[in-house]
Amino acid sequence: MTAEPTAAGHPTGRSRSQHQRRKRILQAAAALASRGGVEAMQMRTVAERAGVALGTLYRYFPSKMDLVVAVVNEEMDTLEASLDRRPPTSDTAAGRAVEVLTRATRGLMREPELADALIRSLLLSDVQTDLGDRMAGMLAKVADRDALLSEEQHVLLRALSSVWIMEMIEMLRGRAGNEQIQDRLEIAAERLLAGF
């Protein structure tokens, strides 16, 4: 649900309260998932913790997976805002892409239980999510700042975002450490983005 602006461009009182309610729900869901995974993110518990009626929660998020997707999108919004405030500084497209992926990894790994819950849920669910596309879009913004990207370049960026998702899974499963992930992402970015 988005806030309806008034004629002056400011949200109305009602839409502001809806926005705040939605934010409380997402914060409650993320807090629960960070302590006990998606299993702890029971709709009734989320509603209680957010201070809203269960019916209200279902109006905002018809299913648990819709809620999970919204929490992921909130994380992506945070990353995107940080990239706007502080753009990557590397001289190469591959270097800038790795900076974005490193920030994304750090952001998610601040709450490893939450990251694990969100990524597993998104991989195992039938709910459509644009995690890979959102990441590819952020990579596109920093890859070639001055030119329009070709369809092939977009495919390569999507492939790099898929590599990142798989590396996150490896890290969350304890099969790779931060340095290994960093090295792999650098190699993948250099190969995939060599023509940028």
Rank of each mutant, 00 (worst) to 15 (best):
R49M: 15
R49E: 15
A50C: 10
G51R: 03
L54M: 09
L54S: 12
L57H: 08
Y58A: 00
Y58T: 05
P62F: 01
S63V: 07
K64V: 00
M65V: 08
M65S: 05
D66F: 00
D66I: 02
V68D: 01
V69G: 01
V72L: 07
V72P: 01
N73S: 11
N73Q: 12
N73Y: 06
E74G: 11
E75F: 10
E75I: 07
D77A: 14
T78S: 15
T78Q: 13
L79M: 14
E80W: 14
D84T: 14
R85A: 13
R86V: 14
P88D: 10
P88G: 10
T89M: 08
D91K: 10
T92N: 04
A93I: 07
A93F: 05
G95H: 05
G95A: 05
G95T: 08
R96Y: 10
A97Y: 08
A97V: 09
A97T: 11
V98G: 04
E99G: 07
E99N: 06
E99F: 07
E99L: 10
L101A: 08
L101T: 08
L101P: 06
L101F: 07
T102Y: 07
T102Q: 15
T102S: 12
R103H: 06
R103F: 03
R103A: 11
A104P: 04
A104C: 12
R106F: 07
R106Y: 09
L108C: 08
E111C: 09
E113V: 06
L114K: 01
L114Q: 05
A115L: 05
A115H: 00
A115S: 06
D116F: 04
L118P: 01
I119S: 00
I119F: 07
S121I: 04
L122Y: 01
L122M: 11
L122H: 00
L122P: 00
L122G: 02
L123N: 15
L124P: 00
L124I: 04
S125K: 05
V127Y: 05
T129C: 07
T129S: 15
D130Q: 09
D130L: 06
L131G: 01
G132C: 02
D133F: 01
D133M: 04
R134N: 03
M135V: 14
M135F: 13
M135L: 13
G137D: 06
M138G: 00
L139C: 04
V142D: 06
V142C: 07
A143I: 04
D144P: 02
D144Q: 11
D144T: 12
D144L: 10
R145S: 09
R145G: 03
R145D: 08
D146V: 14
L148Q: 14
L148S: 15
S150Y: 05
E151R: 14
E151C: 02
E152S: 13
E152H: 13
Q153D: 14
Q153K: 09
V155G: 10
V155R: 12
L156A: 15
L156S: 13
L156W: 14
L157H: 09
L157V: 11
R158C: 06
A159D: 13
L160V: 10
